[in-house]
């Protein structure tokens, strides 16, 4: 098997071009899917028989919560690829994942709090999924903090990549230890939301919203990664050619 395609992706101009061409292919589905999902969530899906209208918060809460862990995994994989094969573009992708992931995590936590107040009667429950989400937010903030604290870009890339890998290795351990802690402290039955069986009319808007949010993540990630690549390669001749083609930079 030829690895040429893999190495071509490591080239910044190639990545910049391909990512730019891919972005609309995610942007349009993101807009359309979120619009359909919102219609399904707000109009088609019936109010829950126990939670009434507040159940609709789920259509933002659950997709962001799913995406938060997925984004961390993407970030760790990109960081590992960058660290092992010394591909700078992969580090740019990892750097682009972190703010998006931190935002998803923060939105999942905030929407969970807003949902928790009417449903559980409290803004904040020390429940394993909540704690895990908060730990994930701290992981993202630590990653961003470490990256921001190192001036040299190559060192920032490689050091934060080690942190991302250490983090992903610890994710399952933290997840299960928090679960274990919870079974000791409180009965798990009260706070089980949703339940295993969800009628199709409520499920399909959720899946559509999740797909839409995933496409949105790729739009944000690719755009940020392109900007990051441009910023790093700003001295390179291909960036100058690109800008003069677009008629932006004259004699800069």
């Amino acid at each position: 098997m030829s690895w040429a395609w893999f190495h071509r992706f490591g080239s910044a101009p190639y990545f910049y071009r391909v990512a730019g061409r891919l972005t609309p292919w995610f942007a349009w589905p993101a807009g359309i899917l979120i619009a359909i999902g919102l219609y399904g969530a707000l109009v088609v899906a019936p109010p829950d028989y126990q939670q009434s209208e507040t159940v609709r918060i789920m259509y933002v809460h659950v997709p962001t919560a799913w995406l938060s862990l997925m984004t961390y995994s993407w970030m760790a994989v990109a960081a590992a690829v960058g660290l092992i094969w010394r591909i700078k573009v992969a580090h740019a992708v990892a750097a682009a994942c972190a703010p998006a992931g931190a935002t998803f995590t923060a939105v999942a936590l905030a929407s969970g709090m807003i949902w928790g107040q009417p449903t559980w009667g409290t803004w904040w429950a020390w429940e394993p999924r909540v704690i895990f989400e908060l730990v994930l937010l701290l992981f993202f903030l630590g990653y961003l903090g470490l990256r921001g604290a190192i001036d040299d870009p190559t060192r920032a890339d490689r050091t934060s990549a080690v942190l991302a890998i250490v983090g992903i290795v610890n994710v399952p351990i933290i997840h299960y230890s928090v679960e274990w802690w919870n079974t000791l402290h409180q009965p798990a039955s009260i706070l089980k939301s949703g339940g295993p069986s969800m009628p199709w009319v409520m499920l399909w808007p959720l899946l559509v919203m999740w797909l839409g949010f995933t496409c949105y993540f790729f739009v944000i990630m690719l755009t940020r990664a392109r900007a990051e690549v441009l910023r790093r390669e700003r001295g390179g001749s291909w960036v100058r050619n690109l800008l003069s083609q677009d008629g932006v930079a004259g004699s800069a």
């Binding site: 730990v135 992981f139 630590g142 470490l146 250490v166 610890n170 351990i173 230890s177 928090v178």
Partner: peptide
């Protein structure tokens, strides 16, 4: 910030 979350278990 880096070490304490890892120390949770």
């Amino acid at each position: 910030l880096l070490v304490l979350p890892l120390a949770i278990p």
